[in-house]
Computed example of a mutant assay.
Amino acid sequence: MAAISLNQTAYEYIHNKIMHGEFLPGSMLSENELAEALSMSRTPIRGAIAQLEHEGLVVTLKNRGILVKEISMKEAMDMFEVIHTFQLYALDHMQTHGDMPDLPKMKKYLELQYEATEQRAYHLYAKYSFQFQYCLVAILGNNSMMKILDDFANKMLLFAITNFQLTPNEPHYRANKLNRSIYEALLAKDFQLLRRIFIETHQVGRERLMRTGRI
Rank of each mutant, 00 (worst) to 15 (best):
K105F: 00
Q133G: 13
L88Y: 01
V82T: 15
E118A: 11
D102F: 00
Y114T: 12
R120T: 08
Y128R: 12
M77W: 07
V82A: 04
V82E: 13
D92C: 01
L91Y: 05
K74N: 10
L103G: 02
P101T: 08
Q95E: 15
Y114I: 15
D78H: 13
Q131H: 14
S129P: 02
Y125P: 04
Y89T: 11
Y134I: 00
L67S: 07
L110G: 00
M94Q: 02
H123A: 10
P104R: 10
H123E: 15
S72D: 03
D99I: 06
Q95F: 02
M79Q: 12
M106C: 03
I83H: 10
A126W: 04
H93Q: 09
E70F: 09
H84E: 07
Y89W: 04
E111W: 08
Y89N: 04
Q87E: 10
H123T: 11
L136P: 00
Y134Q: 12
D78W: 09
E118T: 09
F80L: 06
I83G: 00
M73E: 12
L103Q: 05
F130M: 13
A121K: 13
T85S: 14
A121R: 11
I71A: 01
Y109L: 09
K69M: 14
Q95I: 07
G98A: 06
L136A: 01
M77V: 07
F86K: 07
K74Q: 12
Q87I: 00
E115Y: 04
L124T: 09
F86C: 02
T117I: 03
M79A: 07
Q133H: 12
D102V: 00
L67A: 05
I83L: 14
A76F: 10
M79F: 11
